[in-house]
């Protein structure tokens, strides 16, 4: 589904990704781990199409399409979803209508008729249970006055409604207490299926206790320097990153 080859990305003329390779197949969950500043969030943002990230070399192939130069909204319509590390508050913009516009923009793109108000609300009612988000929050401005945990749950709720093919969760676990983490993880697990791929960008192994990945990658200095299974994450937690670094340097 996703095939990244030798990806080099600069931000403000500074090279952040320095030849990253990653292949993710449908149905798989990949965890990207790594110390601060290794390029984890850059990878998430590049995949979602944020401005200010320049691909200087390499390629990103998603479902046979070249992602570079594709507008963020087109990526979203093609099935890419980014759960933000810091979901922004947008005063004056209604959460639920934003989501309805999002759903219908996707449907229009793939040639399906728009959902009417009733159909959409039924969909919302069904999905909102997944992350135990209070329904009254939905009628507020986007993320305005939400607690940190509510913002993260709102991201997963949006993911549930938008049903992406490829979801990138950028440090969705950060700032969550253990109860909120469990709720978010359960939500994500319920969205796992064989057509959908998920990339978990995370700092901590903790999340992976609840969402068990198929593969774990260590991102360091802009490249993936080690890949393995779940045990790799446990070892990282126990021993830190230094041993991987020296192994890679050897």
């Amino acid at each position: 589904m996703l095939n990244i080859k030798n990806l080099h990305v600069t931000v403000d003329d500074k090279e952040i990704l320095k030849g990253l390779d990653l292949t993710v197949n449908a149905g798989e969950v990949h965890a990207i781990m790594g110390p601060n500043g290794s390029g984890k969030s850059t990878l998430a943002n590049v995949l979602a199409g944020r401005e200010g990230y320049t691909i200087t070399k390499g390629s990103i192939d998603y479902e046979g399409k070249d992602l570079s130069g594709m507008a963020p909204e087109v990526r979203a319509r093609e099935g890419i979803f980014l759960a933000f590390q810091y979901p922004v508050e947008i005063p004056g913009v209604n959460n639920i209508y934003m989501l309805k516009a999002a759903v219908n923009a996707k449907r229009e793109y793939i040639g399906e008729p728009p959902l009417d108000a009733v159909e959409f609300l039924n969909l919302v009612k069904e999905k909102v249970k997944l992350v135990k988000l209070k329904e009254e929050l939905l009628n507020r401005s986007v993320n305005e006055g939400f607690s940190g945990g509510e913002k993260k749950r709102n991201e997963i709720f949006q993911m549930a409604v938008l049903e992406p093919r490829l979801a990138i969760l950028d440090e969705t676990d950060s700032g969550l207490d253990i109860d909120a983490l469990k709720i978010v993880a359960e939500g994500v697990n319920s969205l796992r299926n064989r057509d959908r791929a998920i990339i978990l960008v995370t700092h901590y192994q903790r999340l992976l206790n609840y969402i068990v990945p198929d593969q774990v990658h260590v991102l360091f200095d802009g490249r993936i320097i080690k890949s393995g299974h779940r045990e790799l994450a446990l070892k990282l937690e126990e021993k830190g990153y230094d041993w991987v670094k020296s192994e890679a340097a050897a």
């Binding site: 979602a48 199409g49 909204e73 319509r77 922004v88 934003m98 989501l99 516009a101 999002a102 923009a105």
Partner: peptide, 10 residues
């Protein structure tokens, strides 16, 4: 960017 990442055109 948030709105665009939710499929809404620029």
């Amino acid at each position: 960017f948030y709105l665009r990442s939710r499929a809404i055109d620029e």
